[in-house]
Design a binder for these strands. Structure first.
Lengths: 210, 210
DNA sequence: TGATGTGAAGAGGTTCACAGCT
DNA sequence: AGCTGTGAACCTCTTCACATCA
């Protein structure tokens, strides 16, 4: 499968396409063309065709794209045909909220362990899981084979924990802590920072008040 | 002030620069050059200089940038010299977690109202605020003059609520609901979707297992 | 005929390399 | 001498326009 050479921006749009296609499938729509899919996604037809062309020749000229087949293809490229295991590090406000979020499981991601360093939280059981001590990080990661970590830890310990996670086999980190992580080659990091987003919004507000 | 013509990517990096500069100031560092700032931010010196040059000639050749002055400038461009008011729409798992998050206030964003449609939640008081009915949206927005909305609502009602928010004067939306919002010209939207981020991470995992 | 797939043109950002100040 | 500010080269992504094929 020709996966290399797909632009990063295309990859970031695939989950959106997937969501729209699943929606179409629910409505029993068997076929879409680039125009209608673009409308569903809020993009343009050329973008859709170009993006999908990177995954192979998935459409039929004069007809369009078969919804089910396209879902399969995109899922395969995103590597979510099998379920993926993730651990949650940090059981605070955000950590707790994320654990209860059904969206992860719906999209094929299973949270298989939760860690914290606060003795008051360790042992708490929630959603079928028990909060574990971060001391057990390495052992549990080995046992579960989880490859993804979602971090909602205080800023000052995040890099250190990330290092341990990587050493223990994690190769993808979704970081909600307001810290720029440094990770070795081959490990992917997605940084989420709501404060940053608010500041970008603020810029736009300031712009429009000239 | 020459704000137009600043690349969108530059704007998105300014909050990061700001964070690093505040950190430098805390360490009583009065002056930085593009090299050291780049290291703190995990970028390169050329990027820093180019970005800052869009804001004006803020440095001194042969010397570098004065930390305090740079903080002021970036804050001004981001429009966060005055505090900004935001409302939270949706008091569920995420909404509750966000309300307790001190990071917003620290960066100049005050959450001035919380809305929900669930009768069981309306009236609950939390962090000095009382959860209000979404029926009161328009009135409260007018009264508070909030320009930003943070949405953590169920997907199916989000667009509709966003329309009402925009009509009531909101011009920046931070959307945590897994829905692509359609908004009129002049309204800025930042979409946050953790599931999307996980799927992008999954792609990278799949890549490295070839 | 109708929609895809794609080379080519265009736009937007990043990196380079050096002129220009202090 | 040292570091900024910036034109120019380079690269990446988006949009266009059309050849291509069912």
């Amino acid at each position: 499968m020709e996966r290399a050479g797909i632009p990063a921006t295309t990859i970031q749009r695939l989950p959106l396409y997937l969501r729209c296609l699943l929606q179409a499938e629910e409505q029993r729509i068997p076929l879409v063309n680039s125009g209608t899919l673009a409308e569903m996604c809020g993009t343009n037809a050329a973008q859709i065709r170009k993006d999908l062309s990177y995954l192979g020749e998935l459409g039929t000229r004069g007809i369009g794209y078969e919804v089910r087949a396209l879902i399969e293809h995109i899922s395969a490229v995103l590597g979510i045909t099998e379920r993926r295991r993730a651990v949650l590090v940090g059981f605070g406000r955000f950590g707790g909220a994320l654990l209860g979020y059904p969206g992860f499981a719906e999209r094929g991601f299973d949270i298989v362990a939760v860690f914290d360093s606060d003795p008051d939280k360790i042992g708490v059981s929630v959603g079928g899981l028990t909060v574990l001590s971060v001391d057990e990080l390495e052992g549990v990661l080995q046992a579960t084979g989880a490859e993804i970590a979602i971090m909602t830890t205080p800023g000052d310990v995040t890099q250190e924990l990330a290092d341990r996670l990587v050493r223990a086999g994690v190769r993808g980190i979704l970081n909600l802590a307001p810290v720029r992580l440094v990770v070795p080659e081959g490990v992917a990091v997605r940084q989420v920072c709501l404060s940053t987003d608010l500041q970008v919004l603020s810029f736009h507000l300031a712009q429009n008040t000239l």
